[in-house]
Computed example of a mutant assay.
Amino acid sequence: MQITGKIICGLLGLVLGGPIGLILGIWIGHSFDKGLSQNFEPFSVKADPSNAQAVFFESTFSVMGHLAKADGVVTKYEIETAEQIMRNLGISGDKRQQAIEAFQRGKSEHFSLSQTLEELRLNCARSPSLIQMFIEIQILAATSGGSVSAPEMTILYKIGSAFRIPRLQIERLVEMVIAQQSFHRDQNTGQYTASRGPSIEQAYKVLGIESSASKQEVKRAYRKLMAQHHPDKLVSKGMPEEMIKVATEKSQEIQSAYDMIKKQKGY
């Protein structure tokens, strides 16, 4: 039983208002003690990590399928792109089959984007970095051809709206993901996969900053992005371990962009 509030408020009321103040203070203190005795455990219970991983996995590939059908018909190229993303994510075996089935469900006319995003929000709402990773993977699928079509952009806006992310921020994420792809290196050769090497302008877009940014601003943006894409942190928040490869690659791309900026600015 809590009585601390009654004592403190009662004494304070007595000093300031005499007997009437004492009564009023005890009443206020009682309300305070009652609030402290509430059981807040239901609000502090964290979502089941394993459930969050399952929801993240299903949502990622079903929404990817929905995005592929944005233009009306899923082309052979879009299917190949989805399979390539699965390979890039390091998904194989049973998990690959699950990803394909989720992708097919996303292509269905009966697929509910809003319901899928709501379930993802309920399971991952406490992990903004996980939500951003989900959106970046969708943008990665949409930009596989080098640009995003108007119907695909509409869906990306809807995804952003579900998580209260402004359109401007979605557009900036698209720029960042496209720029990051310029810093992607082939695992076998170690060379950049883009036909031309990344530019300093793209390096700034990777970090989401202007070329006029100060040294402190550059470091702040770099540290924030590295924290958002840290593989171990993402796994602990609900990202399936089978998909952690993409987070590792993004961390490497961010590091490469940061190194280029440091060299250009002479840090």
Rank of each mutant, 00 (worst) to 15 (best):
A257G: 03
V218R: 09
H230A: 12
R223D: 15
K224S: 04
R223C: 04
E217I: 06
A221S: 06
Q255M: 10
H230L: 05
H230V: 06
L225I: 01
E249K: 09
E241W: 03
Q228L: 05
Q216W: 04
P231V: 00
E241C: 06
V218N: 04
E241T: 13
V235H: 04
K250Y: 11
L234S: 00
V246A: 14
H229D: 08
M226C: 10
Y222H: 09
P231D: 02
G238M: 10
T248S: 13
P240D: 00
E242V: 08
M239L: 15
S256V: 04
L225W: 02
K237C: 09
K250R: 15
L234R: 01
L234N: 03
K237W: 11
K224P: 05
K224N: 10
Q255T: 05
K219E: 09
E217Q: 15
K245M: 12
L225V: 02
K224E: 15
K233S: 06
G238K: 05
T248D: 13
A247Y: 01
P231E: 12
E253F: 02
K250F: 12
V246F: 12
A221R: 06
V246Q: 06
Q216P: 05
V246G: 02
R223M: 13
E242F: 03
A247M: 01
E242N: 08
K250M: 08
E249G: 10
D232K: 08
E241L: 11
K224M: 13
Q252W: 07
S256W: 10
I254Y: 01
K250I: 13
P240I: 02
V218E: 11
K219V: 10
M243K: 06
I254G: 05
S251N: 09
K237G: 04
M226R: 07
H229S: 12
K237L: 14
L234I: 00
M226G: 07
K233G: 05
I244V: 15
G238A: 09
S236H: 10
E217P: 07
K237H: 14
I244W: 00
A257S: 02
L234E: 00
D232Q: 10
Q255H: 01
I254S: 08
I254V: 07
Q252A: 06
L234Q: 00
L234A: 01
A227S: 11
A247K: 02
Q216V: 12
H229A: 13
V218K: 07
T248G: 09
I254L: 00
I244T: 03
A221M: 10
E217V: 07
A247Q: 09
D232G: 06
T248Q: 12
Y222G: 05
E253V: 04
E249A: 11
A257L: 02
K250D: 13
Y222K: 07
R220G: 06
K219A: 15
E242R: 04
G238N: 06
E241H: 08
P231H: 11
K233N: 03
Q216R: 10
P240K: 03
L225S: 01
L234C: 03
Q228F: 09
K250N: 14
Q228P: 05
L234W: 06
E217G: 13
E217F: 00
R223N: 08
A247V: 01
K219G: 08
L225Y: 02
Y222S: 09
Q216S: 11
K245N: 12
I244N: 11
E217T: 10
Q252N: 13
M239E: 12
V235C: 03
R220L: 12
M226Q: 14
A227C: 03
V218M: 12
K224C: 10
M226P: 07
M239S: 03
Q255E: 15
A227V: 07
